[in-house]
Design a protein around this nucleic acid. Structure first.
Lengths: 144, 144
DNA sequence: ATGAAAAGTTCACCTTGTCAAATGTTCAGC
DNA sequence: GCTGAACATTTGACAAGGTGAACTTTTCAT
């Protein structure tokens, strides 16, 4: 709690902050190009793996369940998502992406990959090194 | 525009998305601990380098100037920031951090450095490698 | 001098986010 | 079998972030 901020660490944090800002901006733009908001795109991306209870969405995105209600409402009126009661437990609603929702999400993801100019600056080997470092950093954190 | 998404690239993008989410969450929490919002903290961080016209803040954060008005309003009522007319051009207002604003921003920054658990998983040498890779990736992009 | 362009502000509006109070459902214990 | 606690979701009130359009003030080129 009282360690000197090491100059190298400080610089890495600074670079990461810039990269985060850049990534965030590009994600929002890619979503907006499909008239989705960032939050809607994130929910849609989660649902690519399959239907999911509201609660689980809220936990994964670290926000209140009541917040998800609104986001799913807006996705639902646009036909990107459906809500059905879970037969196992009728308290929970399973949110599932429609075909059109899945398609929008995958398009967005692919457009992101191609738009990733920063990554193009690295060779294949460097990208592998980066992948390993990022993996190590994320090992302790939450997943999916 | 039609290149196959290379699995390695895809994985790196995915890891970065997770890192971005993690970083973002920790930043918001660190800001909230000082009862600042993320946006307010970002503006305050920009002002550490010196006073700045509203317009410049908006450009740096890639948002509309009218948005900055509100954020600076809220920072101002809490005494973190002042607005004065630029003597050179009385259309522009120079926003400057007060001592208390600067202090809050620096505290936040330092708390971020120490809270950066993910980085602790890397050795000094690995952090240097990461720094170099990030630098390369950001070379083409906007700065500060 | 006049008029176009720039910087900020204001206003109306939407989305994200929180919290507290409802509703409906499940389930443990009796 | 009933009751009450716990749970998932929704609703409503509210604040902040974000946009776009209309307005004021100031600058500056002609």
């Amino acid at each position: 709690m009282s360690q000197q901020p090491h100059p190298l660490t400080l610089e890495v944090v600074d670079l990461m902050a810039k990269l985060v800002a850049l990534f965030h901006k590009e994600y929002e733009e890619a979503a907006a190009a499909r008239s989705l908001t960032g939050a809607q795109a994130k929910v849609l991306a989660l649902l690519r793996r399959g239907p999911m209870p509201m609660r689980h969405i809220a936990q994964t995105l670290s926000c209140e369940p009541s917040n998800i209600t609104g986001i799913v409402d807006r996705l639902e009126t646009r036909g990107f998502v459906t809500r059905e009661a879970d037969p196992q437990d009728r308290r929970v609603k399973l949110v599932a992406a429609t075909d059109s929702g899945r398609e929008a999400s995958e398009e967005l993801r692919d457009s992101l990959n191609f738009a990733r100019e920063p990554l193009a600056a690295l060779s294949e080997e460097e990208r592998a090194t980066l992948r390993d470092l990022l993996r190590r950093m994320l090992e302790g954190a939450a997943s999916s």
